[in-house]
Amino acid sequence: MLTLIAKIGRLFLNFLATTGKLGVFTGMAIIEGLRPPYYPRQIARQLIDIGYYSLPVVGMTALFTGMVLALQSYTGFSRFSAESSIPNVVVLSITRELGPVLAGLMVAGRMGAAMAAEIGTMRVTEQIDALMTLSTNPFKYLIAPRMIAGLTMLPFLVLIADIIGVFGGYLVSTYKLGFNPINYLHQTWDFLEVIDVVSGLVKASAFGLCISTLGCYHGYYSRGGAQGVGTATTNAVVSASMLILILNYTLTAIFFS
């Protein structure tokens, strides 16, 4: 019994310690990132890595999500002849929730893992120590560019995902379910409000920052060779995904209540 309580206590203390460490890490990254010198090459590399190379994955996810949304809503809504609300359901679900969350999860898997693995390997092969001996601050050189890229590129990706997702719904509705194309687009456009898209983009920024921060944090503090890097990668993806889902609920509650 006592050991159980001790275990719970230790778990709780560990949680607090990690939260504190993560807070200090994020603060350091922001402070160091704002002060010169800046590394435009590193920033450009990360912008391209996150923004451009994630496009296929995010695009495919959005396309099929939009398509399945239309199909699934049809089977449900046709039971009480509410088929006409399919365009509304598709556009709202995509812009408000599915676009940001799915793009966030995909990028967490793709880039969060890559960041943790790259920085973790640099840590265990002494490359981070080497950076410091070459008068280069790793927070400025490695971490700030990734955070900037996460913060700015995720909204961009989500905007693209919104468009492709709505297009996916449009494809299925017009070719398979027999909607009138012009009516479909009209209804989508009329129903959409600025807040729907903006809330999605704000969420995306938050998710992007959280993916980069956790990826870098787990990589930076990884220990003990290949196994340590593996653990760091897993932790980065799992923690980023969890945080995205929790943050998503919180932000939805703030925006739409």
């Binding site: 790259e118 390997t121 490359q127 080497a130 001996t133």
Partner: peptide, 20 residues
């Protein structure tokens, strides 16, 4: 400290070259 560090350089055991 940063000033003093510019005088020092180090050859690492694992070479620690930046592989990117």
């Amino acid at each position: 400290i940063a000033q003093a560090m510019t005088k020092i350089s180090m050859l690492f055991q694992s070479s620690a070259l930046f592989d990117s």
